Each structure stands twice: as structure tokens, then as C-alpha cells.
Amino acid sequence: MKLALFDLDNTLLVGDSDFEWAQFLIEKRALDRELHEARNLEFYEQYKAGTLDIHEFLDFQLKPLSRHPRSQLETWRKEFIEIKIKPLVAPGAKKLIESHMLDGDLCIIITATNSFVTAPIARLFEIDNLIATNPEEENGEFTGKVLGKPSFREGKIDRLEEWLNQHNLTWLSFLQSWFYSDSLNDLPLLSKVTHPVAVDPDPTLKKHAETKGWPVISLR
């Protein structure tokens, strides 16, 4: 058995779904533009620089989920997928995923973005397995807090190993493993698999990949 892991934002997508969701809510006037737009941009720059405080960011990103009924959020999400996400699908993404599926590999999207936003995106790529940051719920509504460990940086390894354990698997279950990512934030997991692949990488990851001899590809 072989394992194929895919980062989502700026890897399978030509853009960041977390960032775009906040911008979408601003456009819907569900968030105040003056208060949230600059902060959203600031967090995005911190992410790209590798300096993001994930808990500070999640407090910013998940609180809006608690301010609106689940039914309203799902209506907005459906529109968000159609007008914001579908145009961002990287041209080579589905072909790459299909190549692993045809080989019978276990395919998983693993992302720091919350599962409410990313679950329908995973379905868009026809991948059944998703590891994402989980927003806490009570009685079917979001509390604005995170549930468990965020799947960010080293947390991606922890969350993946939890997932594997739940499915009676370990790293030793796989003869080979791939991880496709664009981000320096994913260096811990990239260093764990047998086949790390830098996809349209940021400058730090690109330099690291070239030093290590990792493949550098583009899906755009």
C-alpha cells in the first residue's frame, strides 16, 4: 500500500481557501470590512512568512462561525464554493490525484484550514479522506473555538498519525508515501514522507527542496 498526501491551499488550489472565506464573508457583510480585511491580510502574510500564531489566527477565523446559524453558513458556503473556489482549482491538480488513485494509493487531503470550509472542497477533488482543523460544535452550531489539535506545521504529523491509528494503520503500513505542498510551514511533514514534492513552492521551500534534491513541480 502507498500513501499520497495533498496540501490544499496554494497546492491543489491556486489561492488560499481560508483567506478567501474571510474575504467572502466581508463581501457578504457578515464581517466588518474595516475591522477584518486588514487583519485577514496580516495573518496571510504571517502564514507565508512562517511566523503565524495558529491559535491567534483560529480565534480570528472561527469566531465568525459562531455568530451565524449553521443553515446560513451552509448557504453561504455553497455560493463560496461555486464563485470563489471552483475557479481556483489548479489545472493539473485533478490529473495528479487521478494518477495516485489509479495506482490504488490511499489519498488524503491534509490542511490547516478548518473542516467546515474544506469538506466540500475535498469532495470537489473526489477525495474521501480529509484531515483538517476541526471547529468545535454544540448542538449542531459552532462555538467559535477549535476542537483538538490544529493540523498545522508539526500538528499535521500528529493529526495524520491519529487518523492512521484510527484506521489501524501506521507509517509502516506503506511502502512509499508522498506529500505535495507549496509551503515552508509543511517542512515537518515533507521531511517525514519517502517522496516529498514541492508544488509551486514559496521561496523558502523552493530553496530547501533544491538543496535536498526534492522534485519541484507546478500544477498551474
Rank of each mutant, 00 (worst) to 15 (best):
L8A: 03
L8E: 03
V14F: 11
D16I: 04
S17E: 00
E20F: 00
E20S: 14
E20A: 14
W21D: 09
A22Y: 00
L25N: 08
K28P: 03
K28Y: 00
A30L: 14
R33H: 15
E37Y: 14
E37M: 11
R39V: 15
L41C: 09
Q46P: 03
Q46S: 12
Y47C: 06
T51D: 13
L52P: 00
I54F: 09
I54D: 08
E56P: 03
F57R: 05
F57N: 10
F57A: 05
F57E: 00
L58K: 02
L58D: 09
F60C: 04
L62M: 09
L62Y: 06
L62H: 09
K63H: 14
L65I: 09
S66R: 08
P69K: 11
S71M: 08
W76K: 01
W76C: 08
R77E: 02
R77V: 10
K84W: 11
I85W: 04
P87A: 11
L88G: 04
A90I: 09
G92C: 02
A93K: 05
L96N: 00
I97D: 04
D103N: 14
C107L: 08
C107E: 10
C107M: 06
T111Q: 07
N114D: 15
S115Q: 09
F116W: 03
T118H: 07
A122N: 05
R123F: 02
I131T: 07
T133M: 10
T133H: 09
P135H: 05
P135R: 09
E137N: 01
F142K: 02
F142I: 07
G144A: 05
V146Y: 00
L147K: 12
R153I: 12
K156V: 13
I157L: 15
R159I: 00
R159E: 08
E161T: 13
E161D: 10
N165W: 11
N165K: 13
H167Q: 05
N168L: 13
L169C: 03
T170G: 11
L172W: 11
L172E: 14
S173E: 00
F174E: 11
L175M: 10
F179V: 15
S181P: 07
L184Q: 13
L184W: 13
P188D: 02
L190A: 06
K192Q: 13
A198L: 01
D202N: 12
D202H: 01
P203V: 09
K206P: 02
K206S: 12
K207W: 11
A209F: 02
G213E: 02
V216P: 11
I217R: 04
R220H: 13
